[in-house]
Design a protein around this nucleic acid. Structure first.
Lengths: 219, 219
DNA sequence: AAATTAATTTAGGCATACCTAAATTATATA
DNA sequence: TATATAATTTAGGTATGCCTAAATTAATTT
């Protein structure tokens, strides 16, 4: 079996691969809050296990085996988040941290039971897709909120899950995945967004908007 | 914060203290499936943290601080067992192993939510008492089934939780905590027990009976 | 009491996974 | 192209927690 650290590396490589494309040692180390030298060491270990491909100074890529494990961990994480949220009422700004610890120790059996309880869901409380048992991920075609213009309507698809304070902030406006809103005004010079959520007028700063992804954009 | 290993040592010392009284290095090592030398090492570490008292060759005792941590871990374990059993339908012969991993990573917040969901229970699926938030344990006055004589009636109070095969065996007779039965016959020369459970006649071997503790004994 | 046996502790090693500091390699600039 | 800068890797060190083997201490037997 893999160590927790190895699982975290695989998960992080997968996520960075999605976001940035090429995954360098430095980017990976920064993401995991370790030094580049530590990342190099783990990459070497994962390479001997045939879970990653790596050429010196050229970054890492997951092998099929590595990707399968990464998706399994991500599935654990997101199912746990949703379970904690729905079954135990843990606030959505707390589920990430909790799931981060549980994802490495939960059994496939318990996971299957949570999955059944939740009705085989496809997204976690932040809107991120939950890979199925075979590692198949259904990708949504969402765009960053910062791409919206005045007058456009849309639905929140996903928000980033790591910043607890941000999530509390969004929660105070009811800005959850599935929530519809309309852009009233985009302030010039990279300014904030004024939006309408269920009749309420709310101002969302640009830095915050970067962490919100939307769907179903209409004029 | 303590390591998982340190938590396991404290928990084991507590349990052995209950069962055997004096806890020697050798007993502790055997219980934890490590070598005596390893136990000595951890005992030293726990001593510097003032969680145990230890005189060379004289065995270990928990300090109040150590006992508090031991009871906290035991509370985690038993609440998790009951939660997995009741909320997710994990069979009672599987909850111990699962809880063994989760007990070290579950937060106080999630634990409190499980506790509420379960209605502040006082016993786990095997009948073991769940310490409350302040580490108070309500002890039951149960006796081993092997002390019973022909004709006596009783109620199952507790069964040992570590042997999964034993639990499946007991489950097949509906021999859960709370189940009442009457001893029909005790075979001589340390032989098996024949009992009546809800009209069904069942034979329980002496080795199995040693792991069953009963309450409410009547003639 | 002496000798044997058993329990415990010390000493020295291994693996994991992190660190810092130095060396190396690649890339960008002059 | 030579040099400066940035990224990466190597080398060597720390802490945890396990191991084996040897030394010590305690308990039992003769």
């Amino acid at each position: 079996m893999l160590t927790h650290a190895a699982e975290d590396y695989l998960k992080s490589i997968y996520k960075l691969q999605e976001k940035v494309g090429k995954v360098s040692t430095g980017i990976l180390a920064e993401y995991l809050n370790v030094k580049p030298a530590s990342a190099t060491g783990m990459i070497k270990k994962l390479k001997t296990m045939q879970l990653v491909k790596h050429e010196r100074y050229q970054g890492v890529t997951l092998t099929d085996a590595g990707k399968a494990i990464a998706l399994e961990i991500i599935r654990h994480h997101r199912l746990l988040e949703l379970y904690l949220f729905k079954a135990l009422g843990v606030p959505w700004d707390g589920v990430h941290e909790e799931a981060e610890k549980l994802e490495h120790v939960i059994s496939e059996d318990v996971e299957a039971r949570m999955d059944e309880f939740l009705g085989y869901p496809t997204a976690d409380p932040h809107g991120a897709p939950i890979p199925d048992k075979n590692g198949v991920v259904i990708k949504r075609m969402s765009i960053p909120m910062t791409d919206l213009c005045s007058g456009q309507s849309c639905v929140v698809a996903e928000v980033s899950d790591t910043d607890s304070a941000l999530l509390r902030h969004l929660g105070s406006f009811n800005l959850y995945p599935g929530t519809a809103f309309r852009v009233i005004e985009v302030a010039p010079f990279e300014g904030p967004f004024t939006i309408d959520i269920a009749g309420q007028q709310v101002v969302i700063g640009r830095e915050v908007a970067k962490h919100i992804f939307v769907d179903d954009v209409k004029e």
